[in-house]
Design a protein around this nucleic acid. Structure first.
Length: 462
RNA sequence: UCCCCUGUAGCUCAGUUGGCAGAGCGUCUGGCUGUUAACCAGAAUGUCCGUGGUUCGAGCCCGCGCGGGGGAGCCA
């Protein structure tokens, strides 16, 4: 198998014969030499292929066709570079253009492009430094997620993508149907879901949590990592309609254990990014977000700040900072509040716990005060919530009361309630939006730029 | 869904009081003894988002529509 450019860079530049295949980033021509920068995505850096006067002359016709973006094959010898700027290079002997990229149509130029423009050519943007780096980091982080949990005895559970239980309550759902909508609309008759594919209304999942809890109550340590879908009309830099979520769930863990797990998890992922994606992260540090490397190193080194919701509101109330929304006990923490707490008060990640029950989900464990629940949100500077989780309510009677108080139907949750009827245990878990982790680790500003083909309202191209 | 900004060359943008459409980069051509987002010289390139209106005259002003961005809410 052909060596990748990354692998070539690991070889000694002893003049050995090598073959480079990849795409041209830039071509520089002088009278005495031609320089081709070739990249194959195996790493951030290109390999420089140099044609001396004789080689350039014998390959002149091919070199003329080799514009930015063309796919090429270069055969030559791997040598130490006589010029500064790169340690090794390929002294080219023969050259072939595999696929041309005509300059009058190829949209990527050898210059910086805006993220907005690149978003419109999502099929070509992985050929840029930035999106190549995002793709490599995303790959490494996905693997690191599994490594983290596998190393700790967690079982990976595949929760369903299609669901007929409208139970998660985490957001608006996309309907899944095979009914002929045109015909039903024309007929004017009410929709009969008993005739639909699953015999009832079905949707794409908004969370695997309730399903994964069932396996938690059998395998103790479990996690899901898969796509989730929310039909919310949100147009922000940190929401997607289709995103990947990681949801661990641990039997017998209380909220303190849950916080420790979340903190270990984030630190472990940051550690892997710094060690295994150093070249890409250095690029992000220089070109995307200054101070990224320091921020990640600092995050790993220091324990996360922790405070209860009640303490957080007190902090917000006592500051002279003028908020658009005045904080008070019982209010949901606004973006500006979260930013103030993480950026001004603690200067790093912050875990806020024990929120008022009114602003959190039904399945969160009620505290003894009867007013707050054992929720925990991990907030980070720049964009707020990255993890949301809780200790779950394991007491059947309390859970049923909460369901009724919130106007939900008990029948809908019968299988979920069975977990409390038969061998219930305390347990805890959380959800981490994978793309939010990517924003945090890469310093990228828009969540649409850390997933290959983003889906958002009015956006499902490619 | 709400608020604000924005749409001009392939890209990023400028365009004065309403009066002949501009720059940089990219591209192309030529030059240059090893270049690093090469450099130097020259050239080509426009449905000024669409639509209706005001006006002698609209890239510019007004209405409507569409696209893009940022913020808010929802949340991960």
């Amino acid at each position: 198998m052909r060596l990748t450019i990354k692998e070539l860079f690991e070889l000694p530049p002893d003049g050995r014969s090598v073959i480079v295949k990849g795409w041209i980033r830039t071509k520089r021509e002088t009278k005495s030499a031609v320089f081709l920068e070739v990249n194959d995505g195996s790493r951030m850096g290109n390999i420089q292929c140099v044609f001396d006067e004789a080689a350039a002359a014998s390959s002149a016709a091919e070199i003329a066709r080799a514009g930015t973006g063309a796919s090429v094959r270069v055969e030559g010898s791997l040598v130490a570079s006589p010029a500064s700027g790169q340690k090794v290079e390929v002294k080219a002997l023969s050259f072939e253009v595999i696929g041309e990229a005509p300059a009058d149509g190829y949209p990527l130029q050898k210059k910086a492009h805006s993220m907005e423009f690149l978003r419109e050519i999502a099929h070509l943007r992985p050929r840029t430094n930035t999106f190549g780096a995002v793709a490599r980091v995303r790959n490494r982080m996905a693997f690191a997620v599994h490594q983290f949990f596998q190393d700790r005895g967690f079982n990976y559970v595949h929760t369903p993508i299609i669901t007929t239980s409208d139970a998660e309550g985490a957001g608006e759902m996309f309907q899944v149907t095979t009914l002929d909508l045109d015909r039903i609309a024309k007929s004017g008759e009410p929709v009969d879901y008993s005739k639909d594919f699953f015999g009832k209304a079905a949707s794409l999942t908004v969370s695997g949590q309730l399903n994964v809890e069932t396996y938690c109550q059998a395998l103790s340590r479990v996690y899901t990592f898969g796509p989730t879908f929310r039909a919310e009309n949100s147009n922000t830099t940190r929401h997607l309609s289709e995103f990947w979520m990681i949801e661990p769930e641990v039997a017998f863990n209380d909220i303190a254990d849950n916080m420790d797990l979340a903190e270990d998890f984030l630190k472990s992922l940051a550690r892997v990014a710094l060690s295994d994606c150093a070249e890409d992260l250095t690029f992000f540090d220089q070109r995307i977000q200054n101070g990224l490397l320091d921020m990640l190193a600092k995050m790993i080194a220091a324990p996360f700040a922790r405070m209860t919701y009640t303490e957080a509101v007190k902090e917000l109330e006592k500051t002279p900072e003028a908020f658009e929304f005045k904080p008070y006990w019982g209010c949901d923490l606004q973006s500006e509040h979260e930013k103030f707490l993480t950026e001004k008060i603690v200067g790093g990640p912050l875990i806020v716990t024990d929120y008022p029950k009114e602003i959190k989900s039904f399945y969160m464990k009620l505290n003894a005060d009867g007013k707050t629940v054992r929720a925990m949100d991990v907030l980070v500077p720049r964009f707020g919530e990255i993890i949301g989780g809780s200790e779950r309510e394991e007491r059947l009677d309390v859970l049923e009361e909460r369901i009724e108080a919130l106007g939900l139907k008990k029948e809908t949750y019968s299988w979920y309630l069975d977990l409390r009827r038969f061998g219930t245990t305390p347990h805890s878990g959380f959800g981490l939006g994978f793309e939010r982790l990517m924003l945090y680790v890469t310093g990228m500003a828009n969540i649409r730029d850390v997933i290959p083909f983003p889906r958002a309202p009015k956006l499902a191209d490619f």
